[in-house]
């Protein structure tokens, strides 16, 4: 939100001109006025939080894409949350300390980001990334698990990191 003062009128016009139809569009799409209002608000917040306000030639298209991306992100987050909690209950048997609600929240946030960053990456580089960085396995251990050479694992890891960098960048 470190926008220079000159930006504010720009957002102001954008909001006044487009909030109405965006809200209507979202309400039709989501079927829930409260959820739609939240999302419309989040869409503008996201644009505001960008390092620089993009020059909008097609504001409608831009806003719709941003809103759609938010819907996908929220679905992803819900999916991750449900899956994590379900697995956590199953794994509770083997755990010494059950994570606190605050920890669970932080983990779900991190998982959402990691999942978004890895989205679209091929299976093997993704597995290499998770086995090495999440599980803490050595390159050699990951190599034997995936049935490829250590050199290949390093290639996979580079590929995964570059991919993550690009997905984070485009968001």
């Amino acid at each position: 939100m470190n926008q220079p003062a000159s930006i504010t009128p720009l957002i102001d016009t954008l909001y006044r001109e487009h909030h109405g139809w965006l809200f209507a569009w979202l309400r039709k799409k989501l079927g829930c006025p409260h959820h739609a209002a939240d999302l419309a608000h989040d869409t503008f917040t996201r644009i505001l939080s960008l390092p620089r306000i993009p020059c909008l030639h097609e504001p409608r298209a831009y806003l719709t894409i941003t809103a759609k991306r938010l819907i996908i992100d929220q679905a992803r987050r819900r999916q991750i949350e449900q899956s994590y909690l379900a697995e956590l209950v199953l794994a509770a048997e083997t755990m010494r300390n059950f994570p606190s609600p605050v920890e669970i929240l932080a983990v779900i946030q991190a998982l959402t980001q990691i999942s978004a960053a890895l989205d679209g990456l091929a299976e093997k580089p993704r597995l290499a990334f998770l086995l090495h960085y999440l599980d803490g396995q050595t390159h050699a251990a990951v190599a034997s698990q995936l049935g490829v050479s250590t050199r290949m694992i390093q290639k996979y890891l580079v590929q995964a990191l570059v991919h993550c960098h690009q997905t984070c960048y485009s968001n």
Binding site: R76, R77, Q79, I80, E81, Q82, S83, Y84, E87, L88, L90, A91, T94, M95, P99, E103, A106, V107, I108, A110, L111, T112, I114, S115, A116, L118, D119, G120, F129, L130, Y133, L134, D135, G136
Partner: peptide, 22 residues
């Protein structure tokens, strides 16, 4: 990603959740 291990040394739930996400 590494810090997740500190919260729960058992990473199975985190793995499953990431996969579920995309």
């Amino acid at each position: 990603t590494r810090q997740l291990r500190n919260v729960t040394p058992n990473t199975a739930p985190a793995r499953a959740a990431i996969e579920a996400g995309f």
